[in-house]
């Protein structure tokens, strides 16, 4: 029989990884909710975050300053995102062509291939790990790698910060308003392309943060963003495209399902369980758990 202890352990590890998946999904859904485009290169921003973390920990700051490295990595990805929006995305949005989101798809797919090639060219196909000298931590009854616990806590902090910025700042108000009506914010005198720049930066920074946090756990290599991106999209489908609470709840849900599936069914199919949930959601509730049909008042 299954012991209570095993169930608790499985639940804890599911929630811990689920929150990190949620970061990724949040980035995708946040960019979509404001810019109405899917950034297919999210995984590459994750990858850049993980490489930055590796380089900073291994060569610049050292393992004791891992937390500073994470902040710098996330900020670096934010800055890179701002540049990408300015150089590649904004020109499409400024004089929108007929099929704006198709252009955005092609541009971000091209960016995906480009960034992967650059990573392979610079660092080769090798796998790196920034390592971690964090001690094993007891989470309830279960010993957990310190890096995982740290990643979880960092992710929670980032989510809280993200919420506070959206909720209590003027930028947050502009971002939430732009998600409701792009024409509306322009009529109110807000530069929607500047809002896009911040939104794109924040969205990819969330992916970069996930990459930096998971670098000691899932390793660093040119295509390491792929699995997490796929999970991010699964979560977006489960939670509903454009829904921020949906991304959080579905992220944790996906973490739990994978964790329980791996513990009680078969761990070699870990990546399949989420897909089963996606299929179930698409059949039962195609807009996702929290998806909206229309949003303009």
């Amino acid at each position: 029989m299954f012991s209570t202890e095993l169930v608790v352990q499985t639940a804890i590890s599911g929630v811990m990884i689920g929150v990190l998946y949620a970061l990724m999904a949040l980035g995708i859904t946040f960019i979509y909710s404001i810019m109405r485009m899917v950034n297919w290169a999210m995984g590459e921003f994750y990858m850049i975050g993980s490489y930055l973390q590796y380089v900073l920990v291994a060569f610049v700051l050292g393992p004791d300053l891992w937390w500073l490295a994470i902040l710098v990595s996330a900020a670096g990805v934010f800055a890179f995102g701002v540049v990408v929006q300015w150089g590649l995305i904004k020109p499409i949005f400024k004089k929108p062509p007929e099929a704006r989101d198709d252009y955005a798809t092609v541009v971000t797919l091209a960016l995906l291939l480009f960034l992967r090639s650059v990573a392979t060219g610079l660092a080769g196909p090798n796998q790196f790990t920034p390592g971690s000298n964090l001690p094993i931590v007891m989470v309830g009854p279960m010993p957990m790698a310190g890096a995982r616990v740290a990643a979880f806590l960092f992710a929670l902090g980032a989510l809280a910060l993200f919420y506070c910025v959206l909720r209590y700042t003027w930028y947050g108000l502009a971002l939430r308003a732009a998600a409701q009506s792009r024409v509306g914010v322009q009529t109110a005198g807000i530069d929607v392309l500047a809002v896009d720049r911040i939104a794109f930066g924040i969205g990819v920074a969330l992916a970069g943060l996930a990459g930096a946090l998971l670098a000691p756990v899932f390793l660093v290599f040119p295509t390491n963003g792929l699995i997490t991106t796929v999970k991010g999209f699964e979560i977006v489908v489960i939670g509903g495209l454009g829904s921020i609470p949906g991304a959080l709840i579905a992220g944790i849900l996906l973490g739990l399902i994978e964790s329980f599936g791996a513990a009680f069914i078969d761990s070699s199919y870990q990546n399949i369980y989420g897909f089963l949930l996606v299929i179930a959601i698409l059949v039962l509730r195609p807009t996702g758990l929290f998806g909206e049909r229309g949003r303009e008042a």
Binding site: L173, A177, T187, A297
Partner: peptide, 14 residues
Amino acid sequence: RLFGSLTVRENLRT
């Protein structure tokens, strides 16, 4: 073209 999920007060603030 209001901001549907924002409150009346938040619409005015925006």
